[in-house]
């Protein structure tokens, strides 16, 4: 396959992510699309570690590491400072995990996008607090084991639909992307870069360590998440205009779940129920996009 993405690399090799880390792939392609005129705000997440220890850095762009819950606010300040210095060229991007986006950083994110701050917020989603050792977040999907939802206490709540929450803020651009679809990802980041105001990109980033999958399955599982409609690829402009970017041929969620250790405890009945949930969500999305099943 010939990948239509810029050749330039903004990530050095030798980062300290786990083997098969989806978040590392997500960063690599995102930076290819953003280019070197980028300042990154990096609240606490796996990437606080992956970027490497002082005095080295995996990234070739300026990075401002920040407190866990401050992704939206620090970026607001960076943008304001650049504006005051007359720098309209540099893109400000916040790079946060699901914990820093769905949970602890939710207030600052909502505040920043309500003000329509001119920046891109990227959430790379590995569906739990992976950096601290796989604890559940509000992004953890229904049915998942984590170290804080062990045994029979597996998560019985649905994953928070962060994309729709951002859409409700009526910001210029919201999109989902996935490490198994790099061309789509690069295209969406480039599109976001060309817009003004608050832009949000939600990237599915598999985590072999936390999901209990072999590292070589990282991209395969990510692809299956799209193919099963568990993580649809779509974008929403100005809070109203929905476009579904990929329409999969019916795959059953069962196949996706069976490959991952974090779902090992689920019964056939549980999987049927999850299939219904996924069908329901997909139907809802189609309706919003004005399409039929």
């Amino acid at each position: 396959m010939l990948l239509d993405a810029p050749d330039q690399e903004y990530m050095y090799s030798g980062h300290v992510g786990c083997p098969g880390c989806g978040a590392a792939i997500a960063m690599r392609f995102t930076l290819k699309a953003l280019g070197d005129k980028t300042i990154m705000v990096l609240p606490a997440c796996c990437w606080s570690i992956i970027a490497g220890p002082y005095p080295m850095s995996t990234l070739k762009i300026p990075v401002i590491h920040s407190a866990f819950e401050t992704g939206g606010a620090v970026a607001s300040g960076v943008r304001a400072a650049l504006d005051m210095k007359g720098d309209t060229e540099t893109t400000v991007v916040t790079w946060a995990g699901d914990g820093g986006t769905f949970d602890i950083g939710f207030q600052a994110l909502s505040g920043a996008v309500e003000r329509n701050e001119d920046f891109i917020y990227v959430c790379y989603d590995n569906e739990a607090y992976m950096n601290t050792g796989v604890q559940r977040s509000s992004s953890t999907p229904y049915g998942a084991w984590t170290t804080t939802t062990p045994g029979p206490e597996w998560k019985k709540m649905r994953k928070k639909n962060i994309v729709e929450v951002l859409v409700a803020h009526r910001i210029p651009y919201v999109a989902t992307a996935n490490i198994a679809f790099p061309e789509d990802l690069v295209h969406k980041v480039q599109k976001a870069k060309g817009l003004k105001g608050s832009r949000f990109i939600h990237i599915y980033a598999s985590c072999p360590t936390g999901w209990r999958i072999p590292s070589e399955m990282s991209v395969k599982i990510a692809r299956m998440a799209v193919q099963t409609n568990i993580f649809p690829l779509y974008e929403v402009e100005s809070g109203v205009k929905y476009t579904i970017n990929y329409k999969p041929k019916e795959y059953l969620v069962r196949e996706y779940f069976k490959l991952q250790g974090r779902f090992r405890h689920l019964t056939e009945k549980d999987l049927d129920q999850i299939q219904e949930m996924v069908n329901e969500d997909w139907g809802l999305l189609l309706r919003k996009a004005g399409e039929s099943l």
């Binding site: 705000v41 401002i64 920040s66 606010a73 620090v74 300040g77 600052a108």
Partner: peptide, 11 residues
Amino acid sequence: AALIGAQSCGV
């Protein structure tokens, strides 16, 4: 937090 971001950019 916003000031931390702004001041880090030299204003």
